[in-house]
């Protein structure tokens, strides 16, 4: 039993967060302009003006006095606390991340509509399974969709997605005055949120 990846979508169908653990087949870097900044540094497009971002007007601290990590600004590469460095694009296989994220969203949306139509009630789509992985969905009342890919033979991970929502998500995104929700131009990534999800997932008994 293992866990591969986590996607969070907002109610505007945009991917606002991504994290992965044991993926052997990583997505390629997204094409610039196709995903928001602040989704995941591992799949963010390469930019030549990294230093410019660090001098954004929101960063009121001098860069040599500390690093703001409660904000989802992209810090300069040297100050990365937690993230593994992004793999070079040629080493990863498969689709670019932005296309993959759109396909995942398309699948869960179509399946949700299909289940709703077939049941004739307001029934939720819960998960599907292939030979290699199992995809779980948890949708909040505010329209955020938490999507997790895990082991095909594992039990439902809905409890974990709900825990991510009531734990790290509420604490470090909803209650974070510096995080921009519903902005339609930024993701919700920040160091505390990422580290907190990582702790939660790695602390599970199902995680090897």
């Amino acid at each position: 039993m293992t866990i591969y990846s986590l996607y969070i979508y907002d109610r505007h169908c945009e991917c606002v967060y991504y994290q992965d653990w044991h993926r052997t087949k990583r997505p390629k870097q997204a094409i610039e302009g196709n995903i928001f900044p602040g989704v995941s540094r591992a799949v963010a497009p390469y930019t030549s003006d990294m230093n410019m971002v660090a001098q954004s007007p929101r960063n009121t601290l001098l860069s040599n006095t500390g690093v703001i990590i409660a904000v989802n600004e992209e810090p300069p590469p040297s100050s990365s606390l937690h993230n593994a460095p992004a793999p070079p694009p040629q080493s990863s296989t498969g689709l670019p991340f932005d296309e993959e994220a759109k396909l995942v969203y398309g699948v869960i949306l179509s399946l949700r509509n299909m289940i709703r139509k077939l049941s004739g009630k307001d029934e939720q789509f819960v998960n599907y399974r292939t030979s290699a992985y199992k995809l779980h969905v948890y949708e909040t009342a505010s329209g955020y969709k938490f999507v997790m890919l895990g082991d095909p033979n594992g039990d439902s991970l809905r409890f974990l997605l709900r825990q991510i929502y009531i734990g790290p998500f509420l604490e470090y995104v909803v209650r974070n005055p510096l995080a921009t929700m519903d902005s339609r131009e930024r993701g919700i990534d920040n160091e505390y949120f990422r580290a907190s999800i990582d702790r939660l997932v790695r602390g599970l008994s199902v995680f090897p």
């Binding site: 591969y4 044991h22 087949k25 396909l103 599907y128 292939t130 290699a132 992985y133 995809l135 890919l149």
Partner: peptide, 10 residues
């Protein structure tokens, strides 16, 4: 769904 596999072919 067969293309979304996180680990090789599915």
């Amino acid at each position: 769904t067969s293309r979304l596999s996180p680990i090789g072919s599915s």
